[in-house]
């Protein structure tokens, strides 16, 4: 029995500080909790009212569309660029290790620092993105990127792509390293072009690790809060209000704790379902 003393403290820790809060949020989502009755614990039971209020609010659909746009665009660019870089830096040449390490920096820096520097990059007056556009003759596109509701989401996506590229590059590079070199040699002898080798050997063999990177990337990106909150606060005019920002607003700006909890549960359940489907498929593939 003494053996169970090893994992016990960590398990109890997570039960108290993670599992209990999740269950409490579930409980709270059925209560009419607000600033008045929250701390006293006398919030009345309201059934599904909070979910109804959140789901039927006109902003919810918009929030969900913005969240998915942000997640899918950001993830797609991160993955494709990360894959391209992983392929390029998988070759052997002088200083390649140094470059690979330097390319991880954006991912390691604090999100608030990244948000702060991208605010400056995208600034309307004297921001360097505008200067670069001018330099390459696209001065007509100059813009106050973060204060225009039409471009704010795109600008935030660019910043998040920059942050997320290294994660995909790292994972996919580790995958590339584990591919058997002999298969490529055989393909070369058979006269397969580089593109043919990529589509017929690399992609099929890399599929499991690509799925892993995409799933983990989706989960991470879907719950992104820091970079958006600091860059735009969800604005202008709600143009970048993703689900996590709206959960924050409901609970910490409007003190609608019940509705905040309902929104939080919606935020949790989408990646959870996706992960279950993924694991289910993988188990079936492994069994086959």
């Amino acid at each position: 029995m003494g053996r169970y003393a090893f994992p016990a403290p960590a398990l109890i820790y997570l039960l108290v500080f993670m599992v209990y809060p999740i269950l409490y949020t579930f409980y709270l989502s059925f209560r009419g909790a607000n600033a008045v009755n929250f701390l006293s614990g006398t919030a009345p039971f309201v059934g599904l009212d909070n979910y109804r209020a959140v789901l039927s609010s006109p902003t919810f659909v918009r929030t969900l569309v913005i969240t998915l746009t942000f997640t899918i665009c950001s993830l797609a660019f991160q993955h494709v660029i990360g894959f391209a870089l992983a392929l390029f830096f998988n070759r052997e040449f002088p200083f390649v290790r140094l470059f690979r390490a330097l390319l991880l920096l954006g991912w390691m820096l604090p999100a608030v620092v990244n948000a702060s520097l991208w605010r400056w990059m995208f600034s309307g007056s004297f921001g360097v993105v505008n200067s670069l556009l001018e330099t390459v003759g696209l001065g007509g596109l100059q813009h106050d990127w973060l204060t225009d509701p039409n471009t704010a989401l795109g600008a935030v996506i660019v910043a998040d792509v920059w942050v997320g590229i290294p994660f995909h590059m790292l994972l996919l590079h580790a995958g590339l390293q584990s591919l058997p070199g002999s298969v490529y040699e055989a393909a070369r002898i058979d006269g397969a072009s580089a593109w043919r080798q990529f589509t017929s050997i690399t992609v099929p063999l890399m599929r499991p690790i690509m799925f892993t990177a995409l799933l983990l990337g989706f989960v991470q990106t879907f719950k992104s809060f820091d970079i958006i909150y600091v860059m735009t606060g969800g604005g202008p005019a709600g143009a970048t209000t993703v689900l996590p920002v709206s959960v924050y607003n409901l609970s910490f700006d409007y003190f609608q704790f019940g509705q905040g909890a309902a929104a939080a549960n919606i935020l949790l359940v989408i990646p959870l379902l996706l992960s279950i489907v993924y694991l289910w498929n993988r188990r079936r593939e492994d069994a086959a």
Binding site: L14, L15, F17, M18, P21, I22, L267
Partner: peptide, 18 residues
Amino acid sequence: LPFLVSQLVPTINLAVPL
């Protein structure tokens, strides 16, 4: 399981109960 599931949990979901 709790260690794996925790990867899915948004920080903001824990804020109010904590």
